[in-house]
Nucleic acid binder design. Structure first.
Length: 483
RNA sequence: GGCCUGAUGGCGGAGUGGUGACGCACCGGACUGCAAAUCCGUGAACCCGGGUUCGAUUCCCGGUCAGGCCUCCA
């Protein structure tokens, strides 16, 4: 089975072939850290995390280098810092920490590298120097601009003929630009704004150059995969590509990124209007109310390139779907215990075959078709369930079936918790002790067939947001919907 | 204004030139003191109008609606 990916540059789905299978490189445009990130900002985080995991599986954990940058020089950051009267690093560190915490809560593995603009300044200035030296860029009125006319392939990635864009543009063109499409590589800082020394005067880099510089410094050209949101195709990635290639001279022989991947947007629908409720669209806030895994599931419920309808029901649906998957894990554990059975170690060959036969891996390798992979997850779960419920339970087969489900789910970053924690994790130790006491009291009432008392205790538990489930070997419980 | 996507059951969402996955929700049954979980089962959809075809949800054209980009933006 081979991975195929849809490449924005060629507008086709192509077999993925890395330049060097020993060192597969991926770069994804990360956040500008001036505030808590919107849930939409986390779609690429989760999507490319899945790709990262898939690549690690295919090429080996140490063979994949994934860089996700952080923009920590920006007007919005400057404004926020000025408003609070603090250095920009106070702002950027605060929100980068929050961003990383949210990403972790959403089950994203940390990228191999997380370069920051402030730490890449020398490479940025050096690259601008190269561009000026070889005639791809020019200085004007304290700015340095990239000369789009010097790069014939400009516009190829986004599929925009330049003249059409200029004709339809609604923005005023700065007078010092030679061509309307030229963009800033370096610009003077305004009063009281952070600035860095450069051969063109003190100032700060334009938006696009940071990524080109980071890619060269952190990964080296060409990179295998360049990812980001669909909105970045133009102008960001188009510009990045142009400078990244042209920095190496006019032959333009340098390959920049072998595959360009872009995720679609979350369609916020009416939700956008609910500002009164507070910023429900912040991942940071959603994580207060829902498990990160459920939010992750919701983000992967649609194909990454398609728009995803983000409505109020989605995360709840995701939570319920995960409940069923986790329930299988709980049941396997309980039934095995009831039978005093030890689950044997799973057979790797059988597990591998199940991932193929269920369609799970084929779906994932087909341009990351996560919705179809989800479907396979349920068929793997059903298989495990029927093995568990078979008349003469074959523990070897149960173990293999459960292992297949777990391996598949884990590859997507799901079922990573102990199932008891999933259902009961929201309870602290004090609450757990109290629940156990109530359940013991209820068990006594049930033994005495005192149904009114048993029901009264159940109601008491329900008031604690706890659901009791009677089973042949005693009652179990779980925390219901978190408010 | 220019360029570009998408429109599938109550909700989310795959897929396909020839009986329309999967999940959530709903309904009926089994199990249960009652529930929950689980199991069995039912119902329910391809925006509109043309065209191509033996046959279109799937291909083509037009329309409507929604969204994106052209300016910071996942």
């Amino acid at each position: 089975m081979n991975l195929s990916l849809y490449d924005t540059m060629t507008r086709t789905k192509r077999a993925f072939v890395p330049a060097d299978p020993e060192r597969v490189t991926m770069y994804v445009c990360g956040p500008t850290v001036y505030n808590f990130a919107h849930i939409g900002n986390f779609r690429p985080v989760v999507v490319f995390d899945v790709l990262f995991r898939v690549l690690r599986r295919l090429y080996g954990e140490d063979a994949v280098v994934y860089a996700a940058n952080v923009t920590d020089v920006d007007d919005k950051i400057n404004k926020k810092a000025a408003d609070e009267g603090v250095p920009i690093s106070t702002i950027t560190n605060r929100y980068l920490d929050a961003y990383n915490a949210d990403a972790r809560a959403l089950g994203a593995l940390p990228p191999s590298l997380q370069p920051r603009v402030t730490e890449t300044m020398d490479a940025i200035i050096a690259m601008i120097g190269q561009l000026v030296d070889n005639g791809s860029a020019y200085a004007a009125e304290g700015h340095v601009l990239f000369d789009t006319q010097s790069f014939p392939a400009y516009g190829k990635l986004s599929g925009r003929p330049m003249d059409e864009m200029i004709a339809g543009a609604r923005v005023d063109v700065a007078p010092y630009k030679r061509h309307p499409a030229d963009f800033v590589l370096w610009k003077p800082s305004k009063e009281n704004e952070p600035e860095w020394e450069s051969p063109w005067g003190s100032g700060r880099p334009g938006w696009h150059i940071e990524c080109s510089a980071m890619i060269e410094e952190a990964l080296g050209l060409p990179i295998d995969i360049h990812g980001g949101g669909i909105d970045l195709v133009f102008p960001h990635h188009e510009n990045e590509l142009a400078q990244g290639v042209c920095a190496h001279g006019h032959e333009h022989k340098t390959e920049y990124a072998r595959y360009w991947l872009h995720n679609g947007f979350l369609n916020m629908g009416e939700e956008k209007m609910s500002k009164s409720v507070g910023n429900v669209a912040l991942a940071h806030d959603l994580l207060e109310s829902y498990p990160g895994e459920a939010i992750r599931w919701a983000l992967l419920a649609g194909h990454y390139r398609a728009p995803l309808e983000w409505n109020g029901e989605l995360i709840g649906q995701a939570k319920n779907a995960l409940d069923r998957l986790y329930q299988l894990l709980v049941d396997v554990r309980r039934v095995a215990r009831d039978h005093d059975a030890e689950l044997p170690a799973p057979d790797k060959g059988a597990v591998g075959r199940a991932l193929e036969a269920s369609g799970f891996l084929p779906a994932l390798l087909d341009d990351l078709n996560t919705p179809q992979a989800f479907s396979s997850l349920f068929s793997l779960m059903n298989l495990a369930r029927s093995e568990l419920l078979a008349g003469e339970t074959n523990w070897r087969r149960v173990a293999d079936a459960q292992a297949a489900l777990l391996e598949a789910a884990n590859l997507l970053g799901f079922l990573v918790q102990d199932p008891d924690d999933w259902f009961q994790g929201a309870a602290d130790e004090g609450l757990k002790a109290r629940i156990e006491d109530l359940i013991a009291a209820r068990a006594a009432a049930r033994t005495a067939k005192d149904w009114p008392e048993a029901d009264r205790i159940r109601a008491e538990l329900a008031a604690l947001n706890v659901e009791v489930m009677d089973g042949p070997a005693g009652a179990t419980w779980r925390i219901k919907e978190q408010a």
